[in-house]
């Protein structure tokens, strides 16, 4: 979460350095485009994974996001931050994919656990918590899930979330509120701590 917020600050604070990369990438410099990918890949893949709950599909979506970015580079102003466009494209592609396929219930957690250096007890605890979160996310409607992922997991402001989802702040606030209450009720029910 803190990392997400710091990444956001980094994106909005450094539009100047991205300017040269976009300029070079527009001119066909693939190495410059690779640096753009490196800069934004974490945030795109993370959002896709949280929205889709499937590592393979999330990687496919993230790949498609960057290929589309490359195809549309000519339309970007060189000093402009790419993050809002990337958020919107990632959310839209995940939304389309979920509409076409069956809703998945749990996050694919294996890669994160495989790569984390944890002892069996810690791994089991993490797995249980991640399964809990994934199941809680599955309780939300697609729009609630998008609003919660962008606001609570990526740390965007309500106004920024509204811009990404092309919605009003009031609607987004309502989706965030409903989502948080659903998550709270689900987590409390699972952990046996009812009000």
């Amino acid at each position: 979460m803190e990392m997400a917020v710091s990444l956001m600050c980094q994106f909005t604070a450094e539009p100047g350095s991205i300017r040269g990369l976009i300029h070079d990438a527009k001119a066909g410099d693939l190495a410059a485009f690779e640096q753009i990918v490196t800069r934004y890949e974490r945030i795109v893949l993370r959002i896709a994974r949280r929205l889709l709950a499937d590592s393979e599909l999330a990687r496919d979506v993230a790949q498609e996001v960057f290929l589309r970015l490359h195809g549309k580079l000519g339309k970007f102003q060189e000093g402009k931050d790419l993050a809002p466009w990337l958020y919107r494209m990632t959310v839209n592609l995940c939304h389309d994919l979920r509409r076409r396929s069956k809703p998945s219930v749990a996050l694919d957690l294996a890669p994160a656990l495989r790569d984390a250096a944890l002892d069996p007890e810690q791994a089991m605890e993490l797995l249980q918590r991640q399964e809990l979160v994934a199941a809680a996310l599955a309780e939300l409607s697609p729009r609630e899930r998008e609003a919660i992922v962008l606001r609570d997991l990526e740390g965007l402001s309500t106004a920024e979330v509204a811009r990404v989802l092309r919605s009003s702040e009031g609607t987004v606030r309502s989706q965030i509120s409903t989502g948080r209450v659903k998550i709270k009720r689900f987590v409390m029910a699972q952990l046996g701590r009812r009000r």
Partner: peptide
């Protein structure tokens, strides 16, 4: 409490 569990349980991509 649920918010803390929710936001701290998901790992970043490796």
């Amino acid at each position: 409490f649920s918010y803390e569990i929710f936001t701290n349980s998901l790992n970043d991509p490796t």
